[in-house]
Design a protein around this nucleic acid. Structure first.
Lengths: 64, 64
DNA sequence: ACATAATGTCAAGTATATTTTACTTTTTAT
DNA sequence: ATAAAAAGTAAAATATACTTGACATTATGT
């Protein structure tokens, strides 16, 4: 269950994993792991990512 | 920064903290702490809460 | 007034999110 | 073809989400 919406939103802003990581104050590996899908970030980190990318929680993190 | 939207959504379904906790598989204290606002749940728990209450992430957890 | 359920709160323990360091593989540009 | 940047991955350490148990307070009903 990769998070391709996150990867895509980041690509749309031409931002590297490192740049997004710096923008939200976590390590590059954390961003990588979230995109890879094999873990479970906190809501505050999700909110920070949403704001850095100009997207909503539902756009980036909703799952059916 | 209490989460009053969560508290209200739960009340709208006449559900106790304990019932919501059971529905999403955490302790009552965890639900209480989230409503109280003094911590930072994981996105999976937020998603589980949203589904239990029939609300979206943005409705219950977005912050400006 | 009394009983009971629901909520608020705290301290100590456990599970897991996140960091750090390090190395490999893939992309992108020259 | 080569170099450099970006991305993928992993193990060990640290920070913190979440649990358990326990007690106090507030609400709800009889």
């Amino acid at each position: 269950m990769k998070n391709l919406r996150l990867k895509s939103a980041r690509a749309a802003l031409d931002m590297s994993q490192q740049q997004l990581a710096d923008a939200v104050g976590v390590s590059r590996q954390t961003i990588n792991a979230i995109e890879k899908g094999d873990y479970n970030p906190t809501i505050r980190l999700c909110l920070a990512i949403c704001k850095a990318l100009g997207r909503s929680l539902d756009e980036l993190f909703w799952e059916d």
